[in-house]
Design a protein around this nucleic acid. Structure first.
Length: 195
DNA sequence: TATACGATCACCT
DNA sequence: GGTGATCGTATAC
């Protein structure tokens, strides 16, 4: 199991969004490994991207996005869900990749416990769902994925370009330009991609 | 202090 | 296809 390091997170955001597909997201809980392979991502790039939280400038919430790459940006949304992003780009430039779906790998027992009554194939097929399944909350905001003992990303599958599809990002209402950008990446035909 | 709304989800028709 | 849940954040007053 090789953990991704600084060189990976130093690439351009769109490259990272693509390359994160097939990587393994790992959460250590009570000494147990909960993990899943990343099958869907979205890129949010800079203050000019109207869909990016940083489009309104630097605030307490977006502070992490302005920091160095390789850190976790976790935010709370709709009064009940968390979303997890990987911060990208050099310090001072706000950008991140939202992790939208996972194919569960290790710790299925725990994931089911975190999502009671949930059908097996919907444990982690959405940004809010995967955070619930892996117990990702705001206590992990600002964590360094390169050094944390409880939250990090490892090498996974080799993914060929032909296996990848792109589309506009999900859930963007605000802006026409932002909506048109094909900054969502997912594995074609993968059962765990969100709908 | 007050208010509008959101990078979602589950459940309804 | 549509809507309610539920609250932190940003912005306006």
């Amino acid at each position: 199991m090789l953990r991704l390091g600084h060189s990976f997170y130093s690439q351009p955001t769109l490259q990272i969004a693509r390359d994160l597909l097939g990587k393994r997201l790992v959460r250590i809980l009570s000494g147990q490994r909960l993990s899943g392979f990343i099958v869907e991502t979205e890129a949010y790039i800079g203050e000019d991207d109207k869909a990016c939280h940083a489009s309104r400038g630097r605030t307490p919430r977006t502070e992490v996005m302005y920091g160095p790459p390789g850190y976790a940006y976790v935010y709370f949304i709709y009064g009940m869900y968390h979303c997890f992003n990987v911060v990208t780009e050099e310090e001072g430039f706000p950008a991140a990749v939202l992790i939208r779906a996972l194919e569960p790998s290790e710790g299925l027992e725990w994931m089911r416990r975190h999502r009671p009554g949930c059908p097996e194939d919907q444990l982690s097929n959405g940004p809010g769902k995967l955070c619930a399944a892996l117990a990702i909350d705001r206590t992990l905001n600002g964590v360094d994925l390169c050094t944390s003992q409880v939250f990090f990303i490892e090498e996974g599958w080799a993914v060929a370009d032909e296996e990848i599809a792109t589309s506009p990002r999900i859930g963007i209402r605000s802006d026409e330009v932002a909506r048109s950008k094909p900054w969502r990446f997912y594995l074609k035909g993968n059962r765990w991609v969100s709908r």
